[in-house]
């Protein structure tokens, strides 16, 4: 340690200068705000219950089930995502495929968005690239999201207590015309 540092006083003064500068700059902004300059903000605080901070438009929080060329879901009901999900919010119902060479197929795929923590593990775990997370909706507060999910919970017929916002269509034996994907896959 240099002798100047050992005295400690100069470092104290430079530290005090830094905090004092923060104090005066923020105080000036607070006063300007009180005097009517609405865009002057002396603090980074967001007063949460009254004031919400919007999500970034780049937040990937919208689950999307990817379909094949023929419109059937890519999901093969391997249960990897259901297993890896830390919030236990994925419910998959597996069914038989008419083609005996195909092991099984997903009949219902539901995600409880009220429980989902948006970690993206399901996307990473999926061996078939059947589930992705997109930017888009769910830009509002989590509580509003949970309310909506509960309201939609009665949509699913297969799991009465469970929500079914992203149910996949059961595979039909006859090839149906490819239905347009709800969003362009990216």
């Amino acid at each position: 340690m240099r002798p100047a540092q050992r005295v400690y006083l100069r470092e104290v003064l430079s530290g005090l200068g830094l905090t004092a500068r923060h104090f005066f700059v923020n105080m000036g902004r607070h006063i300007a705000h009180a005097l009517g300059r609405r865009n002057a903000r002396g603090a980074v605080t967001i007063q949460y219950p009254e004031e919400h901070r919007g999500y970034s438009p780049r937040l990937r929080s919208l689950h999307r089930l990817v379909r094949r060329e023929d419109g059937s879901p890519r999901c093969v009901a391997c249960m990897m995502c259901e297993t890896v999900c830390p919030a236990y919010c994925i419910y998959i119902v597996a069914g038989e495929h008419p083609n005996p060479e195909i092991e099984k197929v997903c009949e219902a795929f539901s995600i409880d968005l009220g429980k989902c923590v948006f970690c993206g593990y399901c996307v990473e775990a999926c061996p078939e690239d059947a589930i992705r997370m997109d930017t888009g909706i769910l830009g509002d507060a989590p509580r509003a999201r949970a309310r909506r999910t509960r309201r939609e919970a009665s949509v699913s017929g297969t799991h009465p207590p469970r929500p079914d916002p992203v149910a996949c269509r059961p595979p039909s034996s006859s090839p149906s015309p490819p239905s347009p994907s709800p969003r362009p896959s990216g």
Partner: peptide
Amino acid sequence: KQAAIMQDRI
């Protein structure tokens, strides 16, 4: 209050 203002808080 002073601590808050020094630390960019309210």
